[in-house]
Every structure is written in structure tokens, then in C-alpha cells.
């Protein structure tokens, strides 16, 4: 069963600074179809500006797509009546990249974690307090920490508070938008372990957005690679990691530096950063940087097609 299904989802942003200027349209997400199996984690990797955060916000229900359909447990999110939508919101929670910015600096940890509880569950004060205490302990903090203000926590602790808030109403899916990038290396590992434990314990599903491919590998069961608003490669099983074959995915993988001097890469010249001019609007979005781009790549965009079982690539070469 799919927890969340996104069908052909698009989101455009238009900018107009002055009224005489023409509207500038940026397509952050272009017709993405992805689904997340219940109890699994879908990893989403890509460079900054590729639309992965926008897609995460759409999945969490903060942004509305311009086009497409979102199904939560098989029922449509966008066309459901208001009362039902509110119930659906409870099932989708999110953990943000910048943990300091994502909590109100004037609220205590207890108030931060209690916010979704107050909104979605009708509990009395004692029940709520007990729940907050239990949540704090679940994420590895102390009960007494609920009286502290965000400024009194370290980054890692604050991210735990944010995870507790997302966990509070027992959602089906948590969108994790770069939850590690603002943390120290040793703390990143703690949070990764915590996320893995919570997933197992509560049968949670994650949409894990990150640029850290090693962390994604650790936590995910499926993987999607995004490039300029498109999903260019998708594997339904992370064990097929070695089979990733889209030129961009390959480049991404080859850029990962192993923490082992025995495996030092001799940095051969791969000067493909320089963009080649002359792609039509219809071409493959990666063609300008792709070493293997052919004439066909420049005029028609490849669709996502199944190259082998559970493995989809959007590239003319496969």
C-alpha cells in the first residue's frame, strides 16, 4: 500500500518585480510522479535548486501543486472536503533543515512539541503534558527539557525537539528536509540512528531529502534522483544502488569522497561543469552538462521508463 502517491505534480513560481516587467516563471517541479510505500523511506537526492525541497513541501501539504494529484492512502488530498483534509494533515508531518529557524524562539520546547497535539488531538492539560514528556524521552531528551527555550539547546538537541514535534500526532509520513545538514558530524550519526529506530518502532514512512548520499543510503529503502525539477532516476530497492546509471546520478556518485585514504580518487579532469549552449526548450534538462549528450537529447526530453525491474531512468541512452 502506498502511503503517499504524487502523480504528475508540477509547481511553478512566477516573479514580477515591477508591473511593466514580464513575468519570470521558474518551474521548480516538473511533472513528478513518485510514491512511497508504507513503512519505507524514500530518499530524494539532487543538487541545490533542483526542486527537492519544493517537492517535500508539496508532500507535506505546505505548498499546493499547480498541477497533478496527491493521494494519501489512496484518497485524493486536493479534492477532498475541508474537514477530511484537516484529518489528512495530521498524517503528514515535516522536519526542516534549519532547526533553529523552525521553532518559535519565544516558545518553550514543551509548547513547541505540544502545538500539533493541541491542534489535532483533544486532550486535557495533564494528558498533553504526559505526552510531551514521553515524546521527549523517545527522542533522547530529558523530561525537564520541556521548560527550556530553543536558545538553550544545542543544534542536535533542537533537531530532536523538532523530530518529537513531528512525531507527536503519530503521522504516517514524515518529510525530512535535509535534517542533518545543520548538525555536527558526530551528532548527524545520532540523529540518523534515532530516525532509523523511530521508523522501525512506529512503522513510519519517510521522505528523506538530502544531498548526503551516504546518509540517504543508510536510511532509505528506495531512491529517487532529481535534476532541475525532474526525477531522472528511480530505484524501488536501495540494494540496486550499484545499478544507478543516469549520467547525472553517476556523476553524483563519483563525486562522493570516501573517508579512506586507501580509496583516494585520482581526480581526473572531468570538465563538464561548463554548460554547452544550444538546447531547445524541449530537450533533456541535463543535456547541457551531459558528456554523452547527442542531437536527440537536445530536442526531445526523455521520459521516465523502466529499464529493468524496479529501476526507472529518464535518459535516451537506456
Amino acid at each position: 500500500m502506498h502511503v503517499l502517491e504524487m502523480r504528475d505534480v508540477s509547481r511553478k513560481y512566477s516573479f514580477k518585480r515591477y508591473f511593466w516587467q514580464r513575468k519570470k516563471v521558474i518551474e521548480a517541479v516538473k511533472g513528478v510522479t513518485l510514491s512511497i510505500e508504507q513503512g519505507t523511506c524514500l530518499g530524494l537526492v539532487g543538487e541545490s535548486g533542483c526542486g527537492k525541497t519544493t517537492l517535500g513541501k508539496i508532500a507535506a501539504g505546505i505548498e499546493k501543486p499547480d498541477q497533478g494529484e496527491i493521494l494519501l492512502m489512496g484518497s485524493s488530498m486536493l479534492s477532498s472536503p475541508r474537514s477530511q483534509r484537516l484529518l489528512m494533515r495530521k498524517e503528514l508531518q515535516m522536519v526542516f533543515q534549519d532547526c533553529t529557524g523552525s521553532v518559535n524562539p519565544r516558545h518553550t520546547a514543551g509548547k513547541v512539541i505540544g502545538e500539533p497535539i493541541r491542534n489535532f488531538l483533544k486532550l486535557n492539560k495533564d494528558e498533553e503534558e504526559g505526552m510531551v514528556e514521553k515524546l521527549l524521552e523517545t527522542v533522547g531528551l530529558n523530561k525537564e527539557d520541556r521548560h527550556k527555550y530553543p536558545g538553550q539547546f544545542s543544534g542536535g538537541q533542537l533537531q530532536r525537539v523538532c523530530i518529537a514535534r513531528a512525531l507527536a500526532v503519530k503521522p504516517m509520513l514524515i518529510v525530512l528536509d535535509e535534517p542533518l545538514s545543520s548538525l555536527d558530524v558526530s551528532v548527524q550519526a545520532q540523529i540518523l540512528n534515532l530516525l532509523a529506530d523511530l521508523k522501525k518502532e512506529y512503522g513510519l514512512s519517510y521522505l528523506f531529502i538530502s544531498h548526503d548520499i551516504e546518509a540517504v543510503y543508510y536510511l532509505s529503502d528506495a531512491l529517487a534522483v532529481m535534476y532541475l525539477g525532474n526525477v531522472v532516476e528511480y530505484i524501488a530497492d536501495i540494494s540496486m544502488f550499484e545499478a544507478l546509471c543516469h549520467p547525472y546520478a553517476e556523476k553524483l556518485l563519483s563525486s562522493v569522497l570516501p573517508a579512506d585514504p586507501g580509496k583516494i580518487k585520482n581526480m581526473e579532469v572531468k570538465n563538464d561543469e561548463n554548460e554547452k549552449p544550444g538546447t531547445g526548450p524541449g530537450g533533456c534538462s541535463y543535456a547541457r552538462r551531459c558528456a554523452r549528450a547527442s542531437a536527440r537529447c537536445l530536442d526531445t526530453a526523455p521520459g521516465l521508463k523502466e529499464v529493468s525491474e524496479k529501476h526507472y531512468v529518464a535518459c535516451h541512452h537506456y
Partner: peptide, 26 residues
């Protein structure tokens, strides 16, 4: 534009409450 307003939306807080609890105190 701060993230905690988005976070409040995810937590199901209504617009009125966001204004009175998150924006006004700040």
C-alpha cells in the same frame, strides 16, 4: 517567511492562531 511559521502550518495550526501565537509575539 521564517520556517517556524511553515512548521506551525504542518502542525495544523490555523491562520488565526499562527498570527496570535507566532507572529504577534515576535
Amino acid at each position: 517567511e521564517r520556517t517556524f511559521v511553515s512548521a506551525a502550518k504542518v502542525a495544523g495550526t490555523s491562520d488565526m492562531k499562527i498570527i496570535f501565537r507566532h507572529i504577534l509575539p515576535n
